[in-house]
Each structure stands twice: as C-alpha cells, then as structure tokens.
Simulated assay, not measured.
Amino acid sequence: MDRLLGKFASLIASDHRHGGKLTIEARASAFSSEALALQSRGAASQRVRSALYSCAASFTSSAMWAAIDGRRFDTAQRHFDRAASLAAMSGDPAIQFRIWSHAGSLYRHLERPADALAANDVARRLPIARRDPFFASLGHARHAAIHGLTGDTRAVRQVLGHAQEALQQADPSEQRPLWASASYDQAELDGLAQTAFLALGSYGESEAHAHRSLAFLPPHMRRDRAIVTARLAQAQLGQGDIEQAVETARSLYDDTTSQHPRVQDMLQEFTSALHIVAAGAQVTRDWDCFIREQRAFR
C-alpha cells in the first residue's frame, strides 16, 4: 500500500504540471489494475482489502479526471462507471466524494447542468461533506461553477458564500487524502468562482477572481495557471479590454501548457470572440499572424 500511495503522489504531481495527457490516464489505469491484482495474492485483513479497493478507485478516478481534462468524455464515462463500483466496495467516503464530484465536472463540461447538479449533490450529501467543512466547501464551489451554466446568479453567489465560509472553518491540520489536500484551496475556490462568473457574463467579477486565483496558485500548478489565464483573457475581452486581453492570451505561449486541450479550446473561443468584437482591427490581424506563427513552430 505504501508503494502504491507513492505512485499515486507521483501521478497527482504529473497532473498538476501537465494534466489531460493520455500517458497520465494510462498510468493511472495500470496502477489501478496493480492494486486489484494484490487482492488475489495471499491472505489479507478486511481493512487491507478495503484499502486496496480504495486505492484502485483513487487511481481510476485519476484516469477519469485525465480523460475529462483531455476532453475524452466517452472514455471518462467508462472510467466513472468502474471507479464508482470500486469505491462502493471500498467503503471509503472520501474517494466516493471525489468520484461523484468528478462526475459533476464531467457533465458540466458536457454542458448537461441538470446531470451535473445531480451528480455533485451525491457528493455533497455524503457524510464526509457534513462532517468536514473542507469537503463541504469543495462541493459548494463546484456547485457554483455548474450554476453558472444555468444562468442562476443568485445561486452562484449563495453557494460561493457557503464555500468560502466552510473553507475558513476547515481545520488545516486535519489529515486528508492527498488528492484533496493537494488540489483544493483558496486558489481553486477562486478558480471555480471565475468559471461561474464567466459563464454568467459577469466579466468584471470573473477577472477579479482570476487575479486572486493566480496570486494563490503555487508555481508547480502549471496546468491550473494556464486555464485560469485563458479564462482571464476571455473575461478581459468581454469587458472590451481588447489590447490587454490579447496580451494575456499571448502570455500563454510562454509555456508548453498552451497545448493543453482545454486551453486550446478556450483560445479558439477567444479568437472567435475577438473577430466579433474587433473585426478587421489591427490587433486582430496581429493576433491571427501570431497564431499562424505558433502553429508553424509546432
């Protein structure tokens, strides 16, 4: 178990740097199979067997997240089905929370807000979310991002308030699973708030949360930094700050994370919006030229 948990820590670190890669998904699936193979080797206590199922579920949920992050949604759905089954056998409420919360994110990316809210509600109703304000905060923050899709400004503000209050109540010294403690904090809360307000068209508030998120993000969270920056460019463009928005978008190409599938999708959306907002302008022609040059160097 210690050896597998070491591999899990390495996987989480790779996700923070790159995210969405097929190699991360494949490694996670292989580690899940390795954990399950240990079930058939000799005798083990029920506690150890439950821990092995939890470990396999954790790896499968990481494969699911890598597929979501890489926009491979059909594959993500298959990982979800397997992860949910493993989590049920493990009896581990923390990994059950992660898997159902990821399911909410999957359906949000598929623009199925009703399914996203239902899946995230499963996570939010688990005992662990009632017992630990940390998990309650994460559930509320992800609910806010989903409500952004529905256009419900009141709900977004309400659940973000709950998320912030719960995070402030959470005991930072409490031992939590690595995937949770390494991924959710004030930076992620502001990142989800940024997503919610961008979907609502509240571009000023989205930009404010983007700057807060970037200020809190540690350097190794390169994937998250790129995604927040791409959304920041969209929020600036939505406010008519065209020159600043283009400058923000150009900064993404200083790092290889500009090739991340989600970042690429957002840059395509940015380009389309720029052509609407500033059709024929010099800044738009310069941006198009810049993009062609970047593609030529790939």
Rank of each mutant, 00 (worst) to 15 (best):
S183R: 13
G6Q: 04
G42L: 04
D132F: 02
A88M: 12
A196I: 05
R98W: 11
Q234M: 13
G201A: 14
A230D: 01
I146T: 07
H18F: 14
G204C: 05
A57P: 01
A166N: 01
Y253G: 00
G6L: 03
F80L: 13
D254F: 07
N120I: 07
T75C: 04
G139A: 15
A215D: 09
E174D: 05
S183G: 14
Y203R: 09
L52F: 04
G240P: 09
D15G: 05
R222V: 10
E188Y: 14
S251G: 12
R142G: 01
R72F: 04
F290H: 11
A199S: 15
F73P: 11
A141R: 03
R125E: 08
V228W: 01
W287V: 10
H162G: 08
T248F: 05
P261K: 02
G20W: 10
K21C: 12
F73S: 12
R98I: 04
T229P: 05
R125C: 03
V228H: 02
H211T: 14
Q194E: 13
H102T: 11
R47L: 12
A30I: 09
I24Q: 06
S14P: 07
R124L: 09
I242F: 02
V263N: 06
R295P: 00
A43H: 13
A278G: 10
Q282L: 15
F297H: 12
F216E: 05
Q294K: 13
A119R: 06
F31D: 11
P261Q: 07
Q244R: 15
D121Q: 15
R112G: 04
P218D: 00
H109I: 07
L167G: 06
R41S: 15
E243D: 13
G240R: 08
L149P: 10
S213Q: 00
L217W: 05
A230N: 02
L167I: 08
A141V: 07
Q46E: 08
A76R: 05
R78Y: 01
L189S: 04
I227W: 02
F134Y: 07
S14W: 14
S183Y: 14
R49W: 03
S183H: 15
S10I: 09
Q244F: 11
F297S: 14
S58K: 08
E293M: 15
T257D: 08
G240Q: 12
L267Y: 08
P177T: 02
L252W: 02
G104T: 07
L274E: 05
L36T: 10
F197A: 03
V283E: 04
